[in-house]
Design a protein around this nucleic acid. Structure first.
Lengths: 156, 156
DNA sequence: AGTGAAAGTGGATGTGG
DNA sequence: CCACATCCACTTTCACT
């Protein structure tokens, strides 16, 4: 029931605390306390330990982009000329708000991005006008996600 | 300054509220109130409206997997035999906790997954023992993410 | 490490502008 | 749609175990 890495040891109680907060960051400390059977103050102490260990990176509100009309997600593999450095390309990609993830990958492409658009037309527009126009981008390969069937964090 | 979609209208104040909470889900309502210059009660009313519209999907604690020793992220494109249905394969993939995302994609592959492992050996083990062994999986292509340079939600 | 209580702060709500 | 005031719940801290 214990997991040890990088000078941090988390036991079953820590895991229960984390699991509760990973589901809902606003779960009251006292409710977690009731669930695991120790006092609220103890939960609080453990949370401070977990924050100090940097295991807890923060908390985020998750918004549903579909409500705003963003319905088309896609992955785009990007080939870069040798002339351009990866950091320069990433700098340009950061300016495109629809780019949600950017990875420096092994394999065919230099860069793999995840991008969220309103619709196919929007995607096409971004590919042609914003991405292809970045200097050093020679070619792209696009994979549209018809359905995201799994979305989760690592299991604690 | 106004954005309208799917019967929901969010103005500049709503956007400020969302931006604050997307950064840190535990930002106190009263602090947001101070920032935008209206009362806490008004913020609260707007939050109820946003929740009702389903724009707010929830809140999550974000944990840093590196602290637990998960340092290798990869994307795996999966080819499926025509014999196997996509839902059946996804059902198997859900049982592998290291699989964080699973997309039904257009293009070469049937499925694209994002996977988080301790190291290359762990990745190899998962590919050979867990993923390749799923019935219907004929072939995979793996792209290791050497560095994730962008990670964010859609801009409000 | 954990408990229990005390003190401070923020969340939730209803009334009224 | 917002402000103010109230009440209640939660967080945070501390002395003690």
């Amino acid at each position: 029931m214990k997991t040890t890495n990088n000078n941090i040891t988390i036991d079953g109680i820590d895991k229960k605390i984390l699991r509760a907060l990973m589901q809902d960051a606003r779960t009251p400390v006292l409710e977690i306390a009731r669930q695991v059977g120790i006092s609220g103050a103890a939960i609080h102490q453990r949370l401070r330990k977990l924050e100090k260990s940097k295991l807890i990176a923060g908390s985020k509100f998750v918004i549903n982009p579909k409500v705003l009309g963003y319905t088309t997600m896609a992955f785009v593999g990007i080939y870069l000329d040798k002339a351009i450095s990866n950091p320069d390309a990433v700098k340009q990609l950061k300016k495109i708000p629809e780019v949600l993830e950017c990875h420096y990958t092994t394999g065919n492409w230099s860069i793999l991005i995840k991008i969220l658009c309103m619709d196919n037309e929007h995607l096409m527009h971004l590919l042609n006008n914003d991405i292809q126009s970045i200097s050093g981008v020679s070619r792209t390969e696009t994979f549209i996600s018809l359905d995201q069937q799994i979305e989760r964090q690592i299991k604690i």
